[in-house]
Simulated scan of single mutants.
Amino acid sequence: MKFCDECGSIMHKEDNTWVCRSCGYEASRDTAAEQKMVTTQAQEDGGIVDISEAEDRGLPSTSVVCPNCDNDRAYWYMQQIRSADESETRFFICTECEHRWREDDH
């Protein structure tokens, strides 16, 4: 895939030339360079990467006791589950047993 140097639109192949259908710009094709390009269809499928055992969930962690296993560390995130005029609820995920619980405002 090539983009137009003039207007940025996608260019189309016409024989040995790239042609922009938006502005009419033309550029010659370099077939040797095009053959070296790797397309997404030609890329190998690396398979699914299992990150279930990864330490970092991309969430912040804090010091809090898990009610399930008494571990002293948990990931946390905030979510609005009630009406907009009420505060958000903080949810925790234990770093050891992955037990989930929430902190309610009382």
Rank of each mutant, 00 (worst) to 15 (best):
A32N: 10
S28D: 07
S28E: 12
R21A: 12
C20S: 01
C23R: 09
Q43K: 15
T39N: 05
K36Y: 02
S22N: 15
K13Y: 07
E44G: 13
T17R: 08
Q35W: 03
E14L: 10
C20T: 00
E14Y: 12
D50R: 03
S28W: 04
T40V: 13
T39I: 08
C23H: 07
T17F: 03
D50C: 01
T40Q: 12
Y25K: 11
Q43V: 08
A27D: 11
T39M: 04
V19D: 05
T17P: 04
K13L: 11
K13A: 13
Q35C: 05
G47F: 05
Q35N: 11
G47L: 05
Q41I: 06
M37T: 10
D15N: 14
Y25W: 09
E34K: 01
I51H: 08
E44S: 10
A33K: 13
Y25T: 02
D50P: 03
V49W: 05
T17L: 12
V49C: 05
E14S: 14
A42E: 14
N16P: 01
S22P: 02
G47E: 02
A42M: 02
D30M: 03
D30G: 03
S28A: 06
R29A: 00
A32R: 06
V38T: 14
V49A: 09
Q35K: 15
Y25G: 00
C23I: 11
D45H: 06
Q43A: 15
G47D: 04
V19W: 02
W18N: 00
E26F: 03
T40Y: 08
T40I: 14
T31A: 10
K36I: 03
S22H: 11
D15Q: 13
A33G: 04
D50W: 05
W18F: 02
W18I: 00
T40M: 13
V19G: 03
T40A: 13
G47H: 02
C20V: 00
